[in-house]
Amino acid sequence: MGPLGVYVIKRTIQLVITLIVIMTIIFALLEALPAKPYQLLMQSPGLTPQQKEAMIKEMGYDKSVWQRYLIYMTNMFTFNFGRSFMTGQSVNYLLFGGYDDVTHSYVYGRLWNTLILFGLATILAYLIGYFLGAIVAWKRGSWLDSGTIVTSLIFYNMPTFWLGLIFIYIFAFELGWFPLRANAWMQYGYFSIAFVKALIMPLTVLLLVSLAGTTLLMRTSMLDVMGEEYIVTAKAKGLPEKRVLYKHAARNALLPLVTSFVIALAFTVAGGVITEQVFTYPGVGLLYITALMQLDLPIVYATLYIITLLVLIGNFVADLLYGVLDPRVRIQ
């Protein structure tokens, strides 16, 4: 087994331990919530004491905390997320899609919804950011450079939800180009104009906000590279400027962008809460926050687990990639 294999195994063990610790913290936090989920449901006046007892049993609250903890951990690691307390829908279907036996309809997996929107936004933000960052760094000191920096800084510090509200007000409410809520497409499916229309506004807002970060990152990275001697050499050789820019400088400045991209991709699912809430986009974030508000713990647990898992794997992959892409790290 080579050194890389040992490294991968070590990191995998570390990942699993971290996952267990985080899941334990989440369990403890949700146990510490001021209200228990069955208390909310039991306020329904028509329930008999037997039904209430059955409800507590069904939710597992007749067992001790330790038993529940063990069941919870087993369920999480076997991807058996159970059913929603509130609607009775299968959480697995909600997250990954499937034919739902409660509403008798096909449910589009919230995870895929989120990955489509945020994956697209992240990829576009990094693609555009790569070129924009490279160009403005190349033309350092010009009005284009300072203009881009100021615009990027403003968008970087702008609250996403506010930008979303403004977009909704202008393009959905006043102009009526897009739907007010980005969830009506669910009855038409992914391959419909309704879905494209629902995507455009959240995508633009996400792009504007994250483009600021990627552009600045690429610009900084480019400036580092541009100080290197091989760029001077390339220029001195009389290579065309475009060739120096894209072949020699930008490609070498890509490294921090790639690792940050992998982590960003992993964090997309986590970052969705606000944007999805503003646009009512049916993704994991919206699922999480609505479930949290109504103490629908199976959904809360499942979404938190999926989000954490993705973040951890993303970090892991980013570390590996860093080693693969940068020979200087590989030696260590």
């Binding site: 949290l292 508000m293 954490t308």
Partner: peptide, 21 residues
């Protein structure tokens, strides 16, 4: 530190806010 840095920020923030009030 590693664990806190891998926590998905706003998601955990919401959870803590719900717990603490």
């Amino acid at each position: 530190v590693d664990i806190i840095l891998t926590l998905p920020g706003i998601v955990i923030m919401l959870l803590l806010a719900a717990v603490l009030g």
